[in-house]
Design a binder for these strands. Structure first.
Lengths: 180, 180
DNA sequence: GGCAGATGTATCGCACCGATATGATGGACA
DNA sequence: TGTCCATCATATCGGTGCGATACATCTGCC
């Protein structure tokens, strides 16, 4: 996931780790954090794989700070990102991945967008059904607090399904527009 | 966290891994999963630390299945759980921990409950404020999908704050009742 | 008779987090 | 002028947890 996000962000402009992390936070907001403990090792891995390269180091004298390492996408890196974008498999609708994929939706092909949205919806609906059954059937063994937890969870899933329906409807409207 | 959950569940009854996992799912619903890849190693760790012990193995002939390992709490294990319950530190209001702690609220002391609830509220409020600023200020650099993501996040945090307020109010009402 | 699905324990590699170390720069405040 | 804090910047390490996979038996259904 972080690989995907880094590759996507570097399409905007070459960046160094610290900057990348700030943009990541701005982009993903509530959904995901990504700590430096993951970022820097990943950066090195991506470099090793050839998806990104370190730009010529800045003149240390003109930039008095600790030397920054600015990374840039390679042609292979762009290709790699395109591959990842085109992927719409089951892990795509996981809690963790979905937000990241959505954040790069403007760059992903329309029909992939639809598949991700619908897959995510199915996933959330399943969770919702699970919560509904436990709430109605296992009412005895569950104390007040746990029930409260489940009610909150149910509310969230219902809300997310509605939200996804709106997004899907919007996609369909755009689709119709394109067809005309 | 899993340690905490296991210790808590074993207060109900001695259980083996598979059963533990089912109860875990029932208990935590949408909030947390816990895979076997974490469960079994943790079980062994808890045994090594002396918090749990393996009950006398069942008669293999009477129970034709693969031998099940039923675990039981030790006195030290109960103590350990009490310690974990009494903890209301900052990690307690993390997304991951909070649900698990709430699930065992009926066993946690009233004033610890309050501290956790209020800490969680503060945490969620901070996230809410962060989302509000990015949504209003950085409106230019954010595309439609990312904005949608943030709007959804903001909505969720607002909702959770309201929910927490209700829980806190309920706690206070109970507190007043006890005082009378 | 056969096969899917639940029951059950277990391992391995991987992704990510949180704490921590290190150190320079810029601005605020006394 | 001195000092102290926030921000900028890179990096490592231990630990937690996930997902895939393996293996084996038992139950129910067609």
């Amino acid at each position: 996931m972080l690989e995907f996000a880094i590759l996507g962000l570097l399409h905007e402009a070459p960046m160094h780790g610290y900057e990348l992390r700030k943009r990541l936070h701005e982009l993903l907001g509530a959904f995901r954090a990504f700590s430096y403990g993951t970022l820097y090792p990943t950066l090195r891995r991506l470099q090793r794989e050839g998806w990104i390269v370190e730009e010529a180091p800045e003149d240390v004298r003109s930039w008095g700070r600790r030397a920054r390492k600015v990374y840039e996408l390679t042609a292979e890196g762009k290709e790699r990102f395109a591959d990842l974008l085109a992927n719409a498999g089951p892990q795509t609708w996981d809690d963790d991945s979905f937000g990241v994929h959505l954040a790069f939706f403007s760059r992903t092909p329309a029909e992939i967008r639809m598949r991700i949205l619908e897959g995510r919806r199915r996933r959330v609906e399943e969770r919702r059904e699970g919560l509904r059954t436990t709430l109605s059937s296992a009412g005895e063994r569950i104390d007040r607090y746990t029930r409260e937890l489940h009610r909150m969870g149910l509310d969230s899933t219902e809300r997310e399904v509605r939200w996804l329906n709106e997004l899907i409807a919007h996609e369909q409207a755009e689709q119709r527009e394109r067809d005309e």
